[in-house]
Simulated assay, not measured.
Amino acid sequence: MGFCNSCGKPIGKKDYGTNEDGSPNMDYCIECFENGEFTEPDITLNEMIVRKSKEMMAKNPNLRETEATGITTGFLPNLKRWYKEPDYENEDLM
Results as ranks from 00 to 15, higher is better:
Ile43Arg: 09
Trp82Lys: 01
Ile11Val: 09
Thr18Glu: 01
Asp87Phe: 04
Thr66Lys: 14
Tyr88Phe: 15
Asn78Glu: 05
Glu20Ala: 10
Asn25Met: 04
Met57Glu: 00
Asp15His: 11
Leu93Tyr: 08
Thr44Met: 04
Met26Asp: 10
Leu79Gly: 04
Asn90Thr: 08
Leu76Gly: 06
Thr72Ser: 02
Leu93Arg: 14
Phe33Gly: 03
Thr72Ile: 06
Lys9Ala: 10
Cys4Tyr: 05
Thr44Gly: 07
Lys14Ser: 13
Glu20Asp: 09
Asp27Trp: 10
Asn35Thr: 07
Thr18Phe: 09
Glu31Tyr: 13
Ala58Val: 07
Gly70Ile: 04
Thr73Gly: 11
Lys13Gln: 11
Cys29Gly: 06
Pro61Gln: 05
Glu20Gln: 14
Ser23Glu: 06
Asp42Lys: 15
Asp21Gln: 03
Ile49Gln: 07
Ser6Gln: 07
Arg51Thr: 05
Lys54Ser: 11
Glu67Ala: 14
Lys54Ile: 08
Gly74Lys: 00
Glu89Cys: 09
Glu34Ile: 06
Met57Ser: 01
Leu93Gly: 05
Asp21Trp: 03
Glu67Val: 10
Thr18Arg: 07
Ala68Asn: 00
Gly12Gln: 14
Cys29His: 12
Gly2Thr: 15
Arg51Tyr: 02
Glu89Pro: 06
Thr44Phe: 04
Trp82Leu: 03
Glu55Arg: 14
Ser53Glu: 05
Thr18Cys: 05
Asn19Trp: 02
Gly2Tyr: 15
Gly17Cys: 01
Ile43Asp: 05
Gly17Thr: 01
Lys59Ser: 10
Gly17Asn: 04
Asp87Arg: 10
Lys80Asn: 13
Asn62Leu: 12
Gly12Asn: 14
Gly36Asn: 03
Tyr28His: 12
Glu65Phe: 05
Cys4Gly: 04
Gly17Gln: 00
Asp42Pro: 14
Gly70Lys: 10
Cys4Leu: 11
Tyr28Glu: 06
Lys52Cys: 01
